[in-house]
Amino acid sequence: MLDVLTRFAPMLADGALITLKITLLSVSMAALLALPLSLMRIQESRFLRWPVQLIISFFRGTPLIAQLFLLYYGSGQFRPFLMEMGLWGFFRDPVNCAILTFTMNSMAYQTEILRGALQSVDKRSVEAGKAMGMPMNLLYRHIVLPLAYRTAFPALGNEVILMLKGGAVASVITVMDLMGQTRRVFSQSFDINVYLVAAAMYLIIAIVFVSIWRLFERYLNRHQSHRVIRRKPITNRTALN
């Protein structure tokens, strides 16, 4: 086992870097899309809510691997059109297809997380801002969104972890991420322990990310930590003074 790890350690390390790249790019772009979509989801107008709800229902209700196949293999059916539009170079790259699919999938979950967080914001805080004459953009920037993101922060961290692990399906479309490199190493060495090493690497990445995420969460909620103030007991002398 040690001999196999020594020989193929660079390959596994390269795969881990690609896994991190795909995960971070996907969840970052999904976060940018999730905010406006979550704001549309809480509007009263059905013309704003229904298209977003339809997209979210599709990506949350279908398997991630099916979405990946539809984008990667399905785009080949439209190759002439994509070549005319100058987009075929993007869709023929499996890494690009994986990033796009994971972005849309994570966007659906992050949108629902933010929607729930926005609807859980204390109405009294919103009414206080309106009473002070704050316009809607300042109200959302300084009151609604900070409170909503503090509520949604733990769930968003869980979504990143799920995307990190679920992203292993990218190897089925020849993406040489951590799982893809693991399958490649196994095909050359036939050492089943390579999968155990890959699982350990995923675990280490997840533990490091969770530790960093908790530090950020603690920083966001630093104002909520109350210090216990020890009061000096009142005696007759202090009472007289």
Rank of each mutant, 00 (worst) to 15 (best):
L2R: 15
D3S: 14
V4K: 07
L5Y: 10
F8H: 12
P10F: 09
I18G: 02
T19G: 09
I22E: 02
T23M: 09
T23E: 07
L25H: 04
L25Q: 07
S28M: 12
L33R: 02
S38F: 04
L39N: 08
R41Y: 05
Q43E: 12
E44L: 06
E44P: 02
S45M: 13
F47P: 00
L48N: 03
W50M: 05
W50N: 00
P51C: 08
S57D: 13
F58P: 07
G61D: 04
T62E: 03
P63S: 12
I65G: 11
I65W: 11
A66I: 14
Q67H: 15
Q67V: 04
F69V: 15
L70D: 14
L70M: 15
G76D: 08
F78R: 07
F78C: 08
P80E: 10
P80W: 09
P80N: 13
F81W: 13
L82Y: 11
M83P: 01
E84K: 13
E84Y: 12
M85L: 15
G86D: 08
W88P: 08
F91N: 03
R92W: 09
R92A: 14
D93N: 15
P94W: 09
V95F: 14
C97E: 06
A98Q: 01
T101Q: 11
T103L: 10
T103D: 08
S106Q: 08
M107P: 00
Y109A: 09
Q110V: 02
I113H: 02
L114T: 00
L114R: 01
A117K: 00
Q119I: 06
V121L: 09
V121Y: 02
R124V: 00
S125A: 09
E127Y: 03
A128L: 04
A131K: 00
M132N: 05
M132K: 11
P135D: 13
N137D: 14
L139I: 08
Y140R: 02
Y140F: 15
L145R: 02
L147C: 01
A148K: 04
A148Q: 03
A148P: 01
Y149K: 02
G157V: 01
G157D: 05
V160S: 02
I161W: 07
I161T: 06
K165I: 11
S171G: 04
I173R: 03
V175Q: 08
V175L: 14
L178F: 09
M179R: 01
Q181Y: 04
Q181T: 13
V185F: 01
V185Y: 02
F186D: 05
D191L: 08
I192A: 06
I192G: 00
V194Q: 02
L196Y: 12
A198H: 03
A199M: 04
A199T: 13
A200C: 07
Y202P: 07
Y202L: 03
W213P: 01
W213F: 13
R214N: 14
F216H: 13
F216Y: 14
E217R: 09
R218I: 06
L220M: 14
R222T: 05
H223K: 14
H223L: 15
Q224G: 05
Q224E: 12
I229T: 14
R230V: 15
R231T: 11
N236Q: 14
T238C: 00
A239E: 10
